[in-house]
């Protein structure tokens, strides 16, 4: 898949959650151009590929990144830090989608510049609702920074 066409980047290691998320998005007809990466390293590679020319490369990023915090290899917090710390990627909206309801996680992600923080509800109906709202907002309503 070409990077240019990706609208939603889902960073999620749990295959069940991937499937549920995709299902929920499908219900809201938002399944076009979803790209899934399974850990923090892959997520960073998606943007930066070769880390040597990070600054030169102009990446037209996805419209939104759905980021889980608990990830193998490089965790979500670190991914967030790098994305928001890099001028090339810092304007891409990041929504943390996590099971963690911990105050300190919430505080830290906001301090790193996260755009939204959503606790995945156990109830699937609520989850579907949440994903619908989320997709609608970031993909339809939100006006991203133009090149």
């Amino acid at each position: 898949m070409e990077n240019e066409k990706v609208e939603i980047l889902l960073v999620e290691d749990n295959p069940n959650d991937v499937e549920l998320t995709l299902h929920a998005l499908k219900k809201s007809h938002l399944t076009n151009n979803i790209h899934v990466v399974r850990d923090g390293e892959e997520a960073l590679a998606f943007f930066f590929g070769n880390p040597d020319n990070i600054l030169d490369k102009k990446i037209p990023g996805p419209k939104v990144i759905l980021l889980d915090l608990k990830l193998p290899k490089i965790d979500g917090m670190e991914v967030l830090r790098q994305l928001k710390g890099n001028p090339a990627t810092k304007s891409i909206p990041v929504v943390v989608l996590t099971s963690s309801n911990e105050e300190r996680d919430i505080v830290e992600t906001y301090s790193l510049g996260v755009n939204s923080y959503i606790v995945k509800p156990v109830d699937f109906a609520k989850f579907v609702q949440a994903m619908h709202t989320l997709g609608m907002y970031w993909l339809m309503l939100n006006r991203p920074l133009q090149d």
Binding site: N16, L20, S99, S100, P121, V122, D123, F124, A125
Partner: peptide, 17 residues
């Protein structure tokens, strides 16, 4: 908080589907 809820969510989610 993180790991215990994930399988529950899956059980709930797939049952719901």
């Amino acid at each position: 908080s993180h790991d215990l809820r994930a399988p529950l969510r899956s059980i709930n989610g797939f049952s719901q589907i």
